[in-house]
Structure formats: structure tokens, C-alpha cells
Amino acid sequence: MSGMIVDCAVYRDGQRTEGPADFSDALDAARADGDAFVWIGLHEPTSEELDLVASEFGLHPLAVEDALTAAHQRPKLEVYPESLFTVVKTAGYHAAERAVEVGEVLVFIGDAFAITVRHGAVSPLASLRKDLEAQPDLLRHGPAAVLYGVCDRVVDDYLDLAATLQGDLDELEAEVFAPGRSRGVAERIYGFKRQVVAFRRGTAPLQEPATRLVRADVPYVQEGLRPYLRDVLDHLTKVNELVDGLDRLLSDILSANLAQVSVQQNDDMRKISAWAALAAVPTLIAGIYGMNFDHMPELHEVWGYPAAVALMVGVCAVLHRFFKRAGWL
């Protein structure tokens, strides 16, 4: 069991205190104190491990099932008789692959307890715990302070990721409109759009749970914590606006790239048509003179052949000048 428990601590009056090593005893001690709570951090627990925690803390079976199948969950907020269950998507940037990396954090808060279940390598919560422990006034708000801390950290990561994606998009936009752009630009735009869609799956659905958390009808959230949650909601709204802007700009860039390709193809077709017309003239004249008529004019004249060649060259020169001025060549 200790392998999946990252940390277990009891907090009294906003301060971390020494408590029982067993999480069940720690919960009893926190409830007996009346002004304390226990925070347990889990990382990718197995079904048996999470069932043991669920039985001790009275977690709802549906929430436990969601916590086990984390890869398929959308950000959401669910209220159960004994707990408040929240799912948030974490997102980071894999610089080497230029790809968005997604994980999940699931938070249970209830009477004198907070449980965080993390899936994936994105946004480890060890540093978050240290940051919250440095803010005892915030931890005095109880278990909901942990939920606020998780949401605040995740949304701050969203802002950093949005800024990174904006920088990459600026580079891609410059490449699309560069005179000698490289091949495969459309594939890069499409791949970038997929990264934005993956990012959006975490940010957009979180808007509704974040809005609910600032309302007074959500249990286990103290009134003094709601201004902090409103700040998270404001930042999340900004993130969603940024993601919408990225998505729209990507669509515009893709349309512009397709238009450029279409124009280039039309230009290539004009050049091919022009050269085909230039080749057709001597072919036509040579074909006529190659029919070997006995009574055809100029066949038996000394100047007949030079005249035919001169006619070919002259007509081709006129056509070349015409196509050049028209922009086809």
C-alpha cells in the first residue's frame, strides 16, 4: 500500500503536524480534533489499493470507478453524500516531440479529508503540497483548500502551455507565408491542430465545474475560499479564450496554405499549357509538311524547308511573348 501513497499528513490550523502513519488512524485523529483534516496523495493506485482507501473514507463506488479509469474521464464536478469529487485534466508540453502531454488529477474532499489521485507524469503534486504548506492561512479553509490548490496549479500550467503553443504557432505561420516554404506544411498544421484539440479537451469542459465551485450551493467549500476559486475561474476563462484563438488562427492558416497550394497548382497548369501550345505549333507544321504531297506548295522549292522552320520559330516566339506577358511563363 505504501508504494502508491505519495504522502499522508494531518493539517491542524493550517499547519502540517505529526500524525499516525496509518491513514485510517490519521482520519480518526483529524475528526477527533474537529479543526483538522488529513490529505492523502495517491499516484496511479490499483483497484485493490483504491478500494481499501474508499472503504475507509466512504467514497462513492461510481467516483472510485472513475478514479480508476482516469484516461477516459472528462473534467467534471460531482456531489455525493459523503464527498465532493472533481476531475481535472493536467497538460504539459513535451519539447522534444513538440506535443501536448495530458494527465489527470482526481480530488475527493469530505469531512476532514482530502484525497488526490494522480495519473500520468504531468504536474506532480509534491511541489504543490509544499506551496500550500507555506500558506497556512489558505489551509485553514480545510480540505477544499487542496482542491483550490490543484485547480490553481493546473490552470497556471494551462496558461504556460498556451503561451508555448502561441510561440510555436507564430513560427509555423511565418513558415507558411515564407517564399520558399518547405514541403509538408499542411501535415504540420494538421498535427498542430490535433495538439490544440487535445489541449482543449481539458480546458473547455473544466469551465462548468469551475463555475459551480464559486457558487454557495456546493458542499465542503467554505465561503472564504470562494474568492480564490473565482480567481481560478477568471484565469480559466482567459485560457479558453486563448485556445479558441489558437484554433481559429490554425484554421485560417490551413485555409491560406490550401489557397496557396491551389494557386501554385493553377500556375503550374498554366505553364504546362503554355509549353504544350508552344510544342504544338512546330508539331502541326512539321506534320503537314511530313504528309509528302506531290503538289503541295514549297515542297520543291529550295527555300521551302528554311521557310517552314522560320514559320515554326516565328509563331513560337510570338506565343512565348504572349504567354510571358500574361504571366503564364
Rank of each mutant, 00 (worst) to 15 (best):
V232C: 09
S127P: 07
V185C: 07
D168R: 14
D234N: 07
T116Y: 02
P219M: 00
N240R: 13
V218C: 12
P61Q: 10
F23G: 01
G191T: 07
L59F: 13
V154M: 02
Y305C: 06
A32P: 00
V197I: 15
G103D: 04
V214G: 00
G245T: 12
S47P: 05
I253Q: 15
R230T: 08
A310D: 04
G19R: 03
R200H: 03
R226S: 02
L284F: 12
V38G: 08
K89S: 13
D217N: 10
E173D: 06
R16I: 05
A274K: 08
V64K: 03
V281Q: 06
F85Y: 15
A317C: 10
E18I: 09
E44W: 00
A307E: 04
V64T: 14
V315N: 10
D66Q: 01
A256G: 15
H94G: 08
E18F: 07
Y305T: 11
D234W: 03
D156C: 00
R226I: 01
V197K: 09
P124I: 06
A198D: 15
A71H: 13
V107H: 02
P143G: 05
A9D: 12
V53N: 01
A134Q: 13
L125C: 01
K271C: 05
G142A: 08
P205M: 02
V218N: 05
A216L: 11
L254P: 02
D231Y: 04
T237K: 09
D25T: 09
D25H: 13
G34A: 08
A95I: 07
D156R: 03
D152C: 01
L229Y: 01
G287K: 07
L169D: 10
Q222L: 12
P124C: 06
A70P: 01
D157T: 06
W303G: 02
E241H: 12
N266S: 14
V309Y: 07
A216F: 03
E44H: 13
E175T: 13
K324D: 07
H119C: 06
F192V: 10
L27K: 11
A174S: 11
W275D: 05
F177P: 04
A276T: 12
L128S: 09
T86V: 15
R201S: 00
G167Q: 14
R181G: 14
E241Y: 03
D160I: 15
N266W: 03
K193N: 07
W39I: 04
T69C: 11
F199V: 07
H72T: 14
L319G: 03
V154D: 09
V318P: 09
F23R: 11
G184S: 04
E101W: 00
D33C: 04
R181E: 08
F323Q: 00
L233T: 07
I288H: 06
Y148W: 11
G58Y: 00
E223N: 12
A216K: 14
G224I: 05
A114Y: 07
V185M: 14
H60K: 04
V146N: 03
L159R: 04
D137N: 10
I253M: 15
N266L: 06
P61G: 13
H60G: 09
H295D: 13
R321F: 08
D7Y: 09
P61L: 07
A70E: 02
